[in-house]
Each structure stands twice: as C-alpha cells, then as structure tokens.
C-alpha cells in the first residue's frame, strides 16, 4: 500500500497529498501523523490538499480527527489549498470542518503556525459537524 510522505521543516510537519486518497491510505496517514508528532515534538501540522479533486465525508473526518488528535498532542493543524469546487461540495455535504484552521496556501499556513497571522478558524459547534 502506498503511503503519503510526511516532511519535516523545523518544528512543522508538512503533508502534501498528491494522490486520489483511498480510505486505507487516509487512515494510515492519520496514524503516521500522530506518531511523527510524538517522535519529533512538532508544534504544527500543515496538510496541503490543493491537489485533491474531492474531499468526501471519510477524508473530511480524517482531517477533523487529525486536527483534534494533534491538538491533544500540543500541535496545531492547518489545512491549506482547498479547491473552491471541493469547498462548495463539502458545505453542501454538510461538513464544515469546524475547529480546523484553513489557509489559502502553504506560505500563509506556515505564517499561521509561526504565530504571525491569526488565520481563519471556524467556531467549534457543540455537535462538531453540522450547521443546518
């Protein structure tokens, strides 16, 4: 099974998803990331999804869970580069990734992690998934 590579830049882990994610690869990535956060003591995780043509509820959940797990491990997650069509579809699907930080591109994501920018963070709803 293929694995999504995780790069380390300073105290940030960078994941650039370049393949059409199948479920087992997404799950493996989630496991790998938490392990790497612990191993490296990383303070931030940047997930670049600019190459992803779709994000369905499974991958959406993987992203939300990863963000929550990293938070517990004292690392912040920023999701960058989502395509407009993907964002529109996710909202229609009922997924707003509440509590996950987002940024337009890798540069801005890194800036958020470096604490230079406030970034955009959706308010965490109680049910943590649905707004409608």
């Amino acid at each position: 099974m293929d694995r999504v590579p995780i790069l380390r830049i300073g105290d940030v882990l960078l994941v650039s998803i370049q393949v059409d994610l199948q479920d087992d690869i997404a799950l493996a990535l989630q496991d790998d990331l938490s392990q790497r956060i612990v191993d490296t003591g990383a303070k931030g995780v940047l997930i670049d999804i600019s190459a992803l043509e779709i994000v369905d509820s499974f991958v959406g959940r993987m992203i939300s869970t990863t963000a929550a797990v990293s938070r517990v491990l004292d690392a912040e997650t920023v999701v960058v580069g989502m395509q407009p069509a993907v964002a529109i579809t996710l909202v229609e699907l009922g997924l707003t990734l509440s509590g996950v930080r987002t940024a337009l591109d890798v540069d801005r994501g890194l800036a958020i992690l470096a604490g230079r920018e406030s970034g955009v963070v959706a308010e965490a709803d109680d049910d943590d998934q649905l707004d409608d």
Binding site: S57, F58, E92, L93, L95, L130
Partner: peptide
C-alpha cells in the same frame, strides 16, 4: 437523517449524497 451512522463515517453518507 443527518448525523446517523451505523459506524465509520460522519453519518453524512446517504443524506449528504442525496443533496449533491
């Protein structure tokens, strides 16, 4: 119904797909 799931996903599979 949104949010219902018998396991796995976020419970948006059927209802979410219907909206798309």
């Amino acid at each position: 119904t949104d949010g219902w799931t018998s396991g796995g996903g976020m419970g948006l599979g059927l209802s979410g797909a219907k909206r798309l």
